[in-house]
Design a protein around this nucleic acid. Sequence first.
DNA 1: TATCAATTGCAACATTGTTGCGTTTAATTT
DNA 2: AAATTAAACGCAACAATGTTGCAATTGATA
Lengths: 130, 130
Amino acid sequence: MKTTRNTAAKTAVLEVFEKSKTALSHTEIHKQLNDLCDRVTIYRILDRLINEDIIHKISNLDGTVKYAKCNHSHQRVHIHNHAHFSCENCHEITCLESVKPSYIMPHNYKVNEINFTLSGLCPKCLNSNI
Amino acid sequence: MKTTRNTAAKTAVLEVFEKSKTALSHTEIHKQLNDLCDRVTIYRILDRLINEDIIHKISNLDGTVKYAKCNHSHQRVHIHNHAHFSCENCHEITCLESVKPSYIMPHNYKVNEINFTLSGLCPKCLNSNI
DNA sequence: TATCAATTGCAACATTGTTGCGTTTAATTT
DNA sequence: AAATTAAACGCAACAATGTTGCAATTGATA
Ligand SMILES: [Mn+2]
Ligand SMILES: [Mn+2]
Ligand SMILES: [Zn+2]
Ligand SMILES: [Zn+2]
């Protein structure tokens, strides 16, 4: 199998994730890295981090894509079954690790992954907007 | 307020939706219309149909965006609270009108919209793949 | 230190969606 | 039926996002 390496760029991307309380887009990461590496490199690092189950991808209703660090306690099988919240006002996306939807599927479907994103107003914007 | 008009292109787009059992991407619609109108026009028609609550937008985990016809029985307030299924094999996206997630939100969030997309194998692909 | 596959930078490309503007057209009024 | 007029359109140009090929660099290992 392919081995994975620790590079300066990968370390820097991980540090950006550590410092952030919300999910980040490719562009936001690129700006924070301030030309430490090429934007293509960031796409490739994100791909690797997803394969290594270190981050997960969040696809929003408006088409934007963000990434967030996984904070799971080393489960053997790791499933991203938590919800994400996307604020329509400040556009911040946060993991709601405690919110896990329950649902009943029809027969004959095999579910591998779920994507549950809620949009509206986050607590910060809800308070300041009245 | 702005009034809305019935045009040849809009009618054609609606016919495409009527004929389809699955959700459609902008590109798929454009191909089916076979240069009846410009691709920009299709984007604008889709925007209008969403505002008129005739179709809804489905944003998938892999970044693709599709649209599907709403089949609701003229509720006063119309909320898209059903799930969508995205097949990893045939890439068809279908509305699962009967699947509605239940969940408990933390306080201080105002939820306006939800996006619940499941991916995996659809019944068709599940059966043909063993 | 030598090796070598993983990683990177760069250029080029593809896809998707948006905007401005002059022209056409659907629906309403005269 | 003709005039009116704002909605809708086509076209060109642009922006954002993501992908690919390839030569050069570099991290990990021997
Ligand atoms: Mn996780
Ligand atoms: Mn609907
Ligand atoms: Zn907010
Ligand atoms: Zn399928």
